[in-house]
Design a protein around this nucleic acid. Structure first.
Lengths: 342, 342
DNA sequence: TTGAAAGCGCTAACAC
DNA sequence: GTGTTAGCGCTTTCAA
């Protein structure tokens, strides 16, 4: 339907009085054609508003000028547009925009292993997989099919895989702990998610490591990402029951907002009694009262690296990864001792 | 490359001991096949992890299960990831997410008329074009090629075209003017953008109409969208030179942030002396001091309508458009007489 | 320097 | 019921 009115290579050939092969060569700059024919064919093609069909071309070349983006965190969430959570859409936007600048189109694809498989999924030139899980089936599928891919965040199950980039979460987390410590916090609790990705796994490790150095007893809580604010709120009660810590760090903005609500409802003042921060930003962290300190996303640098890595992979060049970019912790009222407006 | 390892329909046919046609029929549920063969073929296909090549399939069917999204505002901006402006990425996210739920993939495509044309662009099943311009070449191209499309925001040059949806901007603008008036504003200036799209054109008309009814002399200023905050700041000076109005409404968040800066630098206090609001939200409106009142984007409802319209168009059904969804004006400190924290 | 022809993997007539 | 075959629009040998 979409391609019904298309001018084909045959039409051009006929009009130019040459063979289809000549047209193909002329337009792709391949083969040995006289400059004259080449020029004439190009003129005719231009005039006829001819545009090679990407499908047919891809069928031969097996390259369609488009890459896929699959966001595992959203797949896990079971919801592709969670309210107020904008980190994901920002990644999508950043990737799409930068890919465009390279002449690549980006297709957002849901969990590749779920049926029915999105039609074009297996025909794309390559993939960016965000936050792959331990033994991620999507990664396995890509691997099995020989489709080039890179990941945002390392693949926790494959330390040897180097085609990944991420913001330096370890550094961000440490900065937050130090910020807490500087404000006098002695006990710090961590609320992490349950997706088995590097983000959760490595961050807990960073936390335990830091606790070890600081001589603090680790207190790790968990709440599924999909439980959102409610999950955070539930955990807040447990935290209070276990004894109010001086500071709480939550992985997601939604969790942090829930924890804030929970703590407040139990009479625990933030930031006066307990400091609060989130390791990823969202509408929730920005608009809570008090606003919640968080690591702000600056996707551009990371997605740039990812595209570089992916293009190298597609071209069959050796990996230059992994790439770590800097995260930026933004201090807001929730972790400032002298409360200020957001 | 990407498709190198692929199992083809022939492999399946051979293994199942049937013809390729039988496999095609079995998997697509078409033709007349005995239940037995159908089942057996399916089993074999499953076992071999066979997945039909979308390219080859599309070549025959001319339908690839993917739609394009082209954002004219970003094309005009010349920059696909403007800092702090998240309305666009939110649209992208919303569309992608909802399309996924319908088994459609979304491909973000830059200006279709610019060379080189994104390879897959002309092979997609349909398009969503956001904010088409007057005599938009992208729309013309789609039209010429017979590719179904719908638009976010009406096509200003074609009043008869009905396949569009948008938030009810007219209502939003009127609500803002009334909000201004209720706060005692007598003179209201408008700062609009220069892209020749419905958003700019209709909003100015709404403004002039409202001024007429309210007996206010219209004061329309313009600043190119791509001029961003700087543009807004420049205009602020002109506005002050022309005489400080009681209120200023800016089309974009970036413009509003610039106007705020400009007014402030000239000693005009917001909101004490002059009220300020923006007709579209962004990081700037949310994080300025004072925070700027703005129409918050709730893309879901609108994108839902757009997808409905597009699917109808693709299916060749009659148009059910246009669709108007409700915008939501969020009052913040910049337009509240008793200043409060953001 | 050019053209003819063989497919890429698939679907849909049309035979058997 | 099932298989054969003719393409979809393109690229790419291989001959001419």
């Amino acid at each position: 339907m979409a391609r019904s009115k298309g001018v084909t290579i045959r039409d051009v050939a006929q009009r130019a009085g040459v063979s289809v092969a000549a047209v193909s060569m002329a337009l792709n700059g391949t083969g040995t054609l006289s400059a004259a024919t080449r020029l004439r064919v190009r003129a005719v093609a231009e005039e006829m508003d001819y545009e090679a069909d990407a499908l047919a071309r891809g069928l031969r070349r097996s390259s369609v000028g488009a890459i896929g983006l699959v966001m595992r965190s959203l797949d896990a969430l079971g919801e592709y547009a969670p309210r107020g959570v904008d980190v994901f859409t920002r990644y999508i936007g950043a990737v799409s925009a930068q890919a465009m600048d390279r002449g690549l189109s980006v297709m957002l694809v849901p969990d590749l292993t779920k049926r029915p498989t999105p039609p074009m999924a297996l025909s794309l030139d390559g993939y960016i997989v965000t936050m792959p899980h331990m033994d991620d089936p999507v990664v396995a599928l890509l691997e099995r099919r020989g489709i080039p891919y890179v990941t945002l965040g390392r693949d926790p199950g494959r330390p040897d895989f180097t085609d990944w980039a991420t913001e330096d979460d370890g550094a961000s987390f440490r900065r937050i702990y130090e910020h807490f410590a500087a404000a006098g916090a002695r006990s710090v609790a961590l609320l992490r998610g349950t997706d088995p990705n590097a983000w959760n796994i490595d961050s807990e490790a960073t936390y335990r490591d830091w606790c070890g150095r600081a001589g603090i007893t680790p207190r790790v809580y968990r709440s599924a990402e999909r439980a959102g604010e409610e999950g955070g709120e539930r955990v807040a009660h447990t935290i209070v029951d276990d004894g109010v810590p001086d500071a709480v760090l939550c992985h997601t903005g939604r969790q942090a907002a829930g924890v804030l609500a929970g703590l407040t409802s139990r009479g625990v003042a933030v930031p006066d009694r307990t400091l609060l921060a989130a390791a990823s930003d969202s509408e929730h962290t920005r608009h809570s009262r008090p606003a919640i300190s968080a690591v702000e996303l600056h996707a551009d640098e990371t997605t740039l690296a990812l595209l570089d890595l992916l293009q190298a992979r597609i071209a069959g060049e050796p990996s230059a990864g992994p790439v770590l970019t800097t995260g930026r912790f933004r201090v807001r009222a929730s972790s400032r001792r002298a409360p200020a407006q957001s």
